[in-house]
Simulated scan of single mutants.
Amino acid sequence: MTERATAPTTPLRARAEVDLAALRANVRTLRARASGAAVMAVVKSDAYGHGAVPCARAAVEAGATWLGTATPEEAFALRAAGLDGRVMCWLWTPGGPWREAIDAGLDLGVSGMWALREIVEAARGARAPARVQLKADTGLGRNGCQPGEDWAALVAEALRAEADGLVRVTGLWSHFACADEPGHPSIAAQLTLFREMVAYAEGRGVRPEVRHIANSPATLTLPESHFDLVRTGIAVYGISPSPEVGSSAELGLRPVMTLSASVALVKHVPGGHGVGYGHHYVTPGATTLGLVPVGYADGIPRHASGTGPVLVDGKWRTVAGRVAMDQFVVDLGGDEPEAGTRAVLFGPGEGGEPTAEDWAQAAGTIAYEIVTRIGTRVPRVHVNEAPAG
C-alpha cells in the first residue's frame, strides 16, 4: 500500500487523506474515558484501512501503551518499523510463526490447548519466555476457551509451562458480542462470566499483568468493564461503533479518513439517457453527468449503487445507476463543475460532506467495513504527521 506523509505535488485520481492529528485527539479522548486503564490501539487490517505504521506511531505518541493486531504478519510489520512497545497478536493457526513471534517479544493470544502446546515447544531455547494471554470465550462464540473443564485444563497447562520457565502468562482476556447495543442482556452475562473465569485462573496462581474485555463501545459506555486495559479499534479512527452508542461528534471523536476523487468527465445528456450497466438509472430529463473514477475495485461498495452520497461542487449528489469496477456516475442536475473538481465521498462531515456512516447506511453495512475495504489503488496521504508543539 502506498503511504505518504504529506500531500503529493501532482494530482491524484483518488486519495484517502488520513489526519493523524485527529487520530491523536481520539486516543486522548479514549484515554480520558478509560477510567485509568491502559489503552490498546488496535491497528489490524492496516489500521482499519488507514495505514498501520503511521497510525500506530501517532497512537503511541498520544499515549496508547499497547498496539493490537490480528495476524502475526501485521505485528512483525510494526516491529520492522521500529515500534518496540507492547504488541499483542491474537489470530493464529496451527504451525504459525511462533518462534519468530516469541523472539519479537509479542504477546500471544491463546484460545486453546493446541496453541499453548505449540508455543511451549517453540519457546524451548528461545531468548526469553513466551508472553501469552489466555482468552476466555464468555459468549461471543468465536475464538477463546470455553468455561469449565476446558478453561481449567488450559490454565493448568499454562501454569506448568510457566513453572518450567517457558511462558509468562501476561494477560487474561475476552471479547464482547453486543457491547454496541447498550443494555443488551448478554453484556452483563459476559462480564459476570469473565470475572468468574479470571477469579478461577488467579485462584490457581495466574498473576496477569492485564485483564481486558472492553472494546470500543464498552470503553465508551461501560466503565465497569475497563479492568486494566481497554482495546480500542474503530473509535481510534473517529468512527462511532454504532448509532446506538452515539454519533462520532456526540462521543467526542473525529473521523480520521477523508476519501475523495477528481471528477474525470462532465457532459450534457438528454432525458431518457441510460446510465451504467443494466440502465438501472435513466435520466428524467436533460441534465449533466459527472464521472467519478473510483469503483468497487477501490472498495466502493456496489451495494451502494443508486444510494451512495457524494459531495461535488458543494452539493450532495447520489450515485446514479450501478457502481462499476473502476468508476461511477452522479447526476449533476445541469450543474457544470470542471473536470478535476474534487468529489468527496466521505470525511468528518464538518464541511457538509457525507460520512462513512452515511455510506454504511446507503450500503446496508457498518462503517467499519466502509473504511477497511478501501483498496490499495487509493493512496493513503497522511497529514499532520508530526505532533503539534
Results as ranks from 00 to 15, higher is better:
residue 208 P to T: 04
residue 285 G to D: 07
residue 305 S to Q: 11
residue 77 A to S: 15
residue 207 R to H: 05
residue 366 I to W: 05
residue 188 A to G: 10
residue 143 N to C: 09
residue 92 W to I: 09
residue 323 V to P: 14
residue 272 G to I: 15
residue 361 Q to M: 14
residue 195 R to Q: 12
residue 82 G to R: 03
residue 236 V to N: 09
residue 233 G to H: 02
residue 86 R to T: 08
residue 22 A to P: 00
residue 107 D to K: 07
residue 35 S to K: 08
residue 66 W to Q: 00
residue 262 S to P: 06
residue 155 V to I: 11
residue 145 C to G: 12
residue 348 P to A: 14
residue 94 P to D: 12
residue 109 G to H: 10
residue 44 K to T: 00
residue 7 A to P: 00
residue 260 S to C: 07
residue 237 Y to E: 01
residue 90 W to I: 12
residue 377 R to W: 07
residue 256 V to E: 11
residue 220 L to A: 03
residue 249 A to S: 12
residue 326 D to M: 11
residue 353 E to V: 10
residue 379 P to M: 07
residue 247 S to K: 14
residue 311 L to D: 13
residue 333 G to L: 13
residue 187 I to G: 00
residue 303 H to N: 15
residue 248 S to H: 08
residue 256 V to A: 11
residue 292 V to G: 04
residue 78 L to S: 06
residue 316 W to V: 05
residue 323 V to L: 13
residue 368 Y to S: 02
residue 112 G to I: 06
residue 341 T to D: 13
residue 57 R to H: 09
residue 18 V to E: 01
residue 33 R to K: 06
residue 82 G to N: 05
residue 386 A to Y: 02
residue 28 R to G: 07
residue 202 E to P: 03
residue 302 R to M: 03
residue 330 V to H: 08
residue 12 L to Q: 14
residue 235 A to S: 09
residue 127 R to F: 09
residue 150 D to M: 10
residue 17 E to H: 06
residue 291 L to S: 09
residue 246 G to E: 05
residue 39 V to H: 14
residue 371 V to A: 10
residue 30 L to D: 00
residue 104 A to T: 13
residue 135 K to C: 05
residue 302 R to K: 04
residue 15 R to E: 15
residue 212 H to Y: 14
residue 192 T to L: 13
residue 379 P to C: 06
residue 188 A to F: 01
residue 306 G to Y: 13
residue 376 T to S: 11
residue 13 R to S: 08
residue 54 P to H: 04
residue 281 Y to Q: 06
residue 338 E to L: 14
residue 182 P to I: 00
residue 368 Y to Q: 04
residue 8 P to R: 07
residue 260 S to M: 07
residue 260 S to N: 04
residue 166 L to V: 07
residue 79 R to G: 09
residue 226 H to E: 10
residue 10 T to S: 15
residue 376 T to C: 03
residue 251 L to T: 03
residue 198 V to N: 09
residue 306 G to V: 13
residue 222 L to A: 02
residue 75 A to N: 05
residue 236 V to L: 09
residue 5 A to W: 06
residue 271 G to L: 10
residue 257 M to Y: 08
residue 283 T to E: 02
residue 350 E to G: 02
residue 328 F to W: 08
residue 265 L to T: 08
residue 274 G to N: 12
residue 108 L to C: 10
residue 113 M to C: 10
residue 158 A to P: 08
residue 129 P to V: 08
residue 159 L to P: 11
residue 143 N to D: 11
residue 254 R to N: 09
residue 292 V to W: 02
residue 354 P to N: 01
residue 87 V to Y: 05
residue 386 A to F: 03
residue 39 V to I: 14
residue 38 A to P: 06
residue 218 A to Q: 02
residue 373 R to H: 15
residue 231 R to L: 02
residue 112 G to K: 15
residue 32 A to I: 11
residue 248 S to D: 11
residue 39 V to R: 14
residue 13 R to G: 03
residue 218 A to N: 02
residue 141 G to S: 07
residue 320 A to M: 08
residue 30 L to T: 01
residue 250 E to H: 00
residue 277 Y to R: 14
residue 306 G to T: 14
